[in-house]
Design a protein around this nucleic acid. Structure first.
Lengths: 212, 212
DNA sequence: ACCGAACTGGCACTCACTGGCACTTGGCAT
DNA sequence: ATGCCAAGTGCCAGTGAGTGCCAGTTCGGT
């Protein structure tokens, strides 16, 4: 997906290019003609990739549609060991790492991410797949935290709750970010980073909300 | 689903019975032979319901698999207006309402709910569908809260975060509840209610967790 | 008893996704 | 350079979920 500093083997670059091509064809097509109206067959034809390979590159159509957003969480999972080496409140640590990852996505990421986020809002099936990725992130964090704070009672639940809050904050920020009519062309990752910062900062107070 | 005090029309009771029959055939079958190995065709044959009607009764195979757990959230959504008439911290209000709903599910609910929960743990697709239902609950709460606290800045985010926490607590409680090997026969709704109470009480402290 | 509306079942169809198999090709040791 | 091997690929045929359509039935109010 990313153009690596170390390019990797010839093969893996071919795969990465095919994946990238599929995403770049798919997301605008989904936005224009609707998610259901664009078939995997058509996408494969356009990208000159066989149907069989499509399903080797992606977990499914929904995974393809969410590639830009999922890449954020997958990157974060990959960096978890480094991230959790930090200190301070877990929510702060995870939040800053999330923002850092967003700021370091490859060039052009924002345009595709906006399309992906809008798709997620319009199609429940796509949304559900996105939540699954976040859930996988949560499981990684829970596993790592339990291992690190070995034996601490409730570490499990704490990690789960913090992740839930981080994910909810992320979803809220992305919603706002992608809902400006011209977001497709003008939204920047810095905008999203700022929204994430604001959202996550507001979280502790948010829990206090009372009914009159 | 529930045996109503007011039985409703003949028609609606026939439908409810067909739905119930499908759920009672499906969940044990899923547990025994695996979710994928049990086809909708087979289920329809067993329950003597046409394939076409199946998809009129349920949103899909996953909806069927999650009926017991989804019913909790759907009931809660139905009672939202009453629930939000209460006062105090939103998290407490929602938590108590959730526990109340669980305690008033129809007889026999617990056995099917355990099967449903285990299925959700084993099959990501099913899990994702469950998260969608929770998301729908969140949207209802957000809508209602924004309407009630008209104009309060951040009410939107607050409601979202509280729901995320409530849902995470619920998931954690249900996970624990259904993972005892003999839960299928011995788990009671009171057990689950107690777990929910404990989990939700622990949440405020959970957010404070720090890395060393 | 009758009429209209709601519900039903069957059929044919689309499309996502999978397993199997033979073939190609890039990576690597020699 | 060469030749071997595993990883990756294309094609095909199959499965099963989900949907649109339509003709027939059944329920509920009048």
């Amino acid at each position: 997906m990313t153009t690596q500093a170390v390019p990797g083997t010839l093969r893996s670059r071919r795969i990465a290019r095919s994946r990238q091509r599929l995403v770049e064809i798919a997301l605008p097509a989904f936005a224009e003609r609707g998610y259901d109206a664009v078939t995997v067959d058509w996408l494969c034809e356009q990208a000159e990739v066989s149907r069989r390979s499509f399903f080797r590159y992606f977990d499914g159509k929904e995974d393809l549609a969410l590639t830009p957003l999922n890449d954020v969480w997958r990157t974060l999972i990959g960096e978890l060991d480094d991230v959790l080496a930090g200190s301070g409140p877990l929510l702060t640590v995870l939040g800053e790492a999330l923002i850092d990852v967003v700021e370091h996505m490859p060039p052009g990421w924002e345009h595709l991410a906006v399309l992906s986020a809008r798709l997620s809002g319009r199609y429940p099936g796509v949304d559900a797949a996105g939540m699954l990725t976040c859930e996988r992130f949560t499981e990684h964090v829970v596993g790592a935290i339990v291992a690190r704070l070995d034996g601490a009672p409730g570490a499990d639940l704490s990690a789960r709750v913090v992740c839930a809050v981080a994910v909810a904050g992320h979803r809220a920020a992305v919603d706002t970010w992608c809902s400006a009519p011209d977001a497709g062309t003008t939204a920047t990752r810095e905008d999203l980073a700022a929204l994430l910062r604001a959202t996550l900062a507001a979280v502790p107070g948010a829990l206090e909300i009372r009914l009159p």
